[in-house]
Design a protein around this nucleic acid. Structure first.
Lengths: 187, 187
DNA sequence: CGCTTAAAGCAAGAGGCTTCGCGTTAATAT
DNA sequence: ATATTAACGCGAAGCCTCTTGCTTTAAGCG
């Protein structure tokens, strides 16, 4: 029998307050300039509490990332392969913009883990594979998961990181065109 | 008239020692665990000197990155488009592996700047464009710089970051095939 | 409602990071 | 060679990050 946790009420409020403070600060400050002291002041939660619950700033940010990635953006299911991929591409282009992009990068790099230790990336990979399988079941000829990642997702991330700006809907659609045309030309 | 600098002899030695210490430590330790104190001890250079010359660990790493990127890996010139692209792809796959990958990421993200304030990424972009121009001058039909970045470079970075392993020569070559086949199928 | 105790608040203290003043070394100019 | 002074070494001081023991609050349960 586990020692009874109590995630309700106050604990949840503290968690929310801290998370919001982190997100606010990441929008305002430079990445390196965010400190636990700032998070404590902004959230009204005592520093010691943050250190006890999250340990390090990295740990805290991982937690924020996982929460953020878990709740939002389910994998699309529009009924057609093109529709699904396009919707997903637009969604990624959106996510990867803005001040939270660094969070996503971090999530990938350090491999943020959920409560059961699973890497978020794996979860997402499984979901995307299911999306492709649905297309195959409909008789369409979907690309592989690897192709989807390389032709769609990788460029979207690349733009966000190295050009420091998102990829825009039109551009995202052109990537989808490229991916779908691969099926036509090569085996 | 400027107040005479003196970059020779000792200053250069200190710089080299510190740079090597940083590279060694990045190979051994976790990214977050590297401190200026460690760099000082490893290099035999006094902490105060490092603080005076580079200010922060970020500043120091930026300096290392720029040096590293500037000296190594010139853009290939093999005489054929495929040869150039393939050589470059293999080079990037190599660079992006190993423990220095994080440096490259950082270089892109923060936009490490050289002595004249130019972003390294822009330099590299210019060189690559020249490579493509050479192919065009030979009568070949090269892809655009954007296509090169999206189809070759982005996936290589993506692999390194999110799969936490490099992309292997065979895989790099398959990316080249994909890029060159684009010309064939779409305008 | 009252009991138990997980979780947060508080404040003091240790330890590490960063700065500063001063003395020493050695790169450059004459 | 000698003078000049940029750049480094050294140690101490100050500041900030992080930990720790204790107290207070309130979630979960009968």
């Amino acid at each position: 029998m586990q020692p009874a946790r109590r995630p309700g009420g106050r604990t949840a409020r503290v968690r929310t307050a801290v998370h919001e403070a982190v997100l606010e600060l990441l929008r305002e400050e430079e990445w390196d300039d965010v400190s636990i002291a700032q998070v404590a002041e902004r959230s009204g939660v005592h520093q010691a509490t943050i250190y006890r619950r999250w340990g390090t700033l990295s740990g805290l940010i991982d937690d924020v990332v996982y929460e953020r990635l878990s709740q939002g953006s389910p994998v699309p299911d529009t009924g057609t392969l093109r529709g699904d991929i396009e919707a997903y591409a637009l969604q990624v282009a959106e996510d990867v913009s803005g001040p939270l992009a660094a969070l996503l990068m971090r999530a990938g790099m350090v491999g943020s883990r959920g409560p059961e230790g699973e890497t978020f990336l794996i979860n997402r990979g499984v979901q995307l594979q299911a999306m492709l399988d649905r297309a195959a079941a409909r008789g369409e000829q979907p690309p592989t998961l690897l192709e989807l990642m390389e032709v769609i997702i990788a460029p979207l991330y690349y733009h966000a990181i190295f050009f420091n700006r998102p990829a825009g809907p039109d551009h995202a659609r052109s990537l989808v065109d490229r991916l779908l045309s691969l099926r036509g030309s090569s085996g």
